[in-house]
């Protein structure tokens, strides 16, 4: 097990290499940062000098080499908006993002697991139809639209919740609903179909033939088996959480990593964009590793070596 974790951690290194390369290429072609950094009245000569000073006239491979050297010490360069190091700026935003994504995820899990199980057990009834229909609706609503509607209705018309920002628990409600809805919708569908599949398995019939009460059959025999595919697919759809977070944070001006990234892209604040993309990539890798380890806890058939 330890060996497996070490191996997985080592595997992160080449992945990071590829990410740094992609990030660098994107930024390399994204446009001239000097134009954004200098005032409009700067002369052509000033611009040239600036470019030279920043190393922007070096060949691609040299620039990439310098980039790698810098980021290996945590130096992604300075933000042109904040005039401070980019990496600390990004890391500073992590707690806000974790708070929102974590609460949204928790809400989504608490809603989707019971609903998914319930609708699977009430298959083809009105209850099932409502839950399935609701999850289709939840999935069909774009995050930004839901966010704006919630703001209009519950923050502007009826002023129950703040329009934007972070601070108290009340601030968290609307963003968490916005982000949680799409995740919950997707997960409800997953739990339902996985549960249906599990309920048709032979070992469920065996449990019933032993006299296990139906509720216990579902909870202690079917549920854990249901989770395995749910976790797999949820991990695969981690992109929903990431992109959902970016949109939700923008709509609610939630001071997390997503908002920072969007603002940095708009301002061509390359150092911050690079640092943010890099950190998001690492987070995705870590979440994948953690889910692989969760499998081992749930499924004795999986042995990593």
């Amino acid at each position: 097990m330890k060996k497996y974790i070490t191996k997985r951690l080592l595997e992160i290194i080449p992945v990071l290499f590829i990410i740094t390369f992609v990030v660098f290429v994107l930024m390399y072609h994204a446009g001239d940062p000097v134009a954004m950094m200098l005032p409009d009245e700067a002369s052509q000569e000033d611009r040239e000098n600036m470019r030279e000073a920043l190393g922007l006239n070096d060949p691609f491979i040299v620039q990439y080499g310098n980039f790698l050297k810098d980021i290996s010490t945590g130096n992604f360069g300075e933000s042109i908006r904040y005039n401070t190091q980019a990496l600390p700026l990004v890391i500073e935003r992590l707690p806000a993002s974790f708070e929102l994504a974590g609460v949204a995820m928790l809400v989504a899990i608490l809603i989707s697991i019971p609903l998914g199980i319930w609708s699977a057990n009430k298959r083809n009834t009105v209850t099932d139809l409502f839950i399935t229909g609701g999850s289709v609706l939840g999935k069909a609503m774009p995050n930004f639209w839901l966010g704006i509607m919630l703001i209009l209705i519950l923050a502007v018309n009826v002023q129950i919740f703040p329009v934007s920002g972070r601070g108290t628990l009340v601030h968290l409600v609307l963003p968490a609903i916005t982000l949680g809805t799409s995740i919950a919708a997707e997960m409800t569908r997953l739990v339902r179909s996985s549960m249906l599949d599990t309920l048709g398995q032979d070992y469920i019939r065996t449990a019933s033939s032993k006299g296990v009460p139906y509720f216990k059959v579902v909870v202690s025999h079917a549920f854990r088996n249901t989770l395995i595919p749910v976790i797999t697919i949820t991990t695969l759809q981690l992109s929903i959480v990431v992109s959902g977070s970016i949109i939700t944070e923008s709509v609610f001006q939630w001071p997390g990593l997503g908002l920072l990234l969007v603002q940095a892209v708009n301002a061509r604040d390359m150092a911050v964009v690079q640092a943010a993309v890099f950190i998001i990539a690492i987070l995705v890798i870590v979440v994948n590793l953690i889910t692989d380890l969760i499998y081992v806890l749930i499924d004795p058939r999986i042995k990593y070596s």
Binding site: Q201, D202, Y203, R205, T206, A207, S208, S209, K210, G211, V212, P213, Y214, H221, R224, N225, I298, D299, P300, R301
Partner: peptide, 27 residues
């Protein structure tokens, strides 16, 4: 249903055809 549950596994029990899939893989 409750009376039937008491019968199953206690007074009448059953063995199925598929030993490979009839046991819960996680227990």
């Amino acid at each position: 249903k409750k009376q039937m549950r008491k019968v199953r596994g206690d007074e009448i029990s059953m063995i199925f055809q598929e030993p490979l899939t009839s046991l819960n893989p996680l227990i």
